[in-house]
Write a protein that binds this DNA or RNA. Sequence first.
RNA 1: GCACGAGUGGCAGAGUAGCUAUGCAAUGGACUGCAGAUCCAUGGACCCGGGUGCAAAUCCCGGCUCGUGCUCCA
Length: 462
Amino acid sequence: MVLRVYDTKSRQKRVFKALEKGKVGMYVCGITPYSRSHLGHARCYLSFDVIHRWLEYRGYEVNYVQNFTDIDDKIIAVSEAENMDYTVISQRNIDEFFEVMDKMNILRADHYPRVTQTIPEIIEMVSELEKKGNAYSSEDGVYFDIESAPEKYGQLTGQTLENVRAGAGGRVLGTGTGKKNHRDFALWKLAKPDEPYWESPWGKGRPGWHIECSAMSLKHLGKQFDIHGGGHDLRFPHHEAEIFQSECCTGVEPVVNYWMHNGFVNIDGEKMSKSLGNFWTVSDSFKSYSPLALRYALLSVPYRSPIDLTSEFLEDAANHHEKLISAYVDSFSSDVKVDIDLKEHGKSFENSMDDDFNSRGAIIEIQKVISSNCGIGVEDWLEKYAGCILGLLPPKEELLNMVKKASQAREDIADKVESLLSYRDKARENKDWDQADKIREELNEMGVVVEDGEDGPRWKIV
RNA sequence: GCACGAGUGGCAGAGUAGCUAUGCAAUGGACUGCAGAUCCAUGGACCCGGGUGCAAAUCCCGGCUCGUGCUCCA
């Protein structure tokens, strides 16, 4: 089966074909580090992490670029509110971003360019656009002139020039006073007093919101590249703006071969938002769920569909993840022949992933494999599919350590447990069920679970 | 209002006309004193209304609902 990828622009799954054989250039819009990372960020970078891993599994050499928009209005607002330099704010949130994403086993991209380190390239790009007649400067900045390339409008969202109403909802008023047309967007914003700034041909200022991604993708991936990703909300205006900027600047089109957008995160059926009070940062979520259980939950739904996180859904995922781990541990010491066809399940897993990276279908195959007898071959199978590709397994050494600690803990209380169990056995022989259950309850309180089997009771520590 | 997407069993999710999708959960049974684990089995769906067809979740028309975007947003 061949890899098929859903492309937002053509609105269909297309067979994936790299521009350069065996190589993939992938750019994913990164965060604006003005606050801590939330579950929406986690889903986005997790989705592209799995896409990244799958492309590599399929033999592509992936050049993965993810930016930080480390200067922007909101960062400035936070820095003013906290009376700290904006660089402190953005660095703090970038550090936090890496911390939580690392915990979720999200592999690092190859490059993490920052706006503040790409200013010369941005200025160059804006100048070029101005030179080509796609941009004009006005009293408060430089703007992209939509009228200079109207045919490019609406490529990702189907919006027409007429339909984008001026000041929708009355919220645009008061910004961008120098625009000729309300659809134009800022390439360079002149600094107000006390705002951070860089020198430019148009005066002291900073880049507009969209231009940084065009400049950084051009710098790292060239005039044309394979995949551009981001959250669903970025299609318009952000990604459409990028198409204008990049294609008008370089004259090469299309700038991007496959536009990929991940779906949103809802909480209990509602959009996650600060105003609804159901806003979860990633680190908040870690208080209730382990990073890998959260990863399991988020991968349980294909990346394009919206995901509704309810406590039932998350609990399920946490249980499944726990089962996965214990099946993996069980497989370490197994010497019996496995009772399922691992090859078949591997094939189904791969078919799912080839179908627009359907991690849901892939997880179903994992569930099938872990409900087998976990015989010979399962360990390798899980390491490959659940571990390397979906990133759901902790390192083996860590688990072995845990097993070792657990067996140590078991030894420490073994005598006591065994003697209690022998009392229980006697009680059971006498059919004194009350007494037997009482002892079992006592063991439970010690954290020991007793399970009666054909060859007597077995116990384990939970 | 306009644009884009979506509506399948408790949840997730395949499926572009005929054949049990599947996974988890649920229910029943077996095994257990009970519980757990395990095994076996089972039920249950295609937003609504029309139309075309021998046959429609699947095609056509109309409607409804939801999400997202049009404004900073992953």
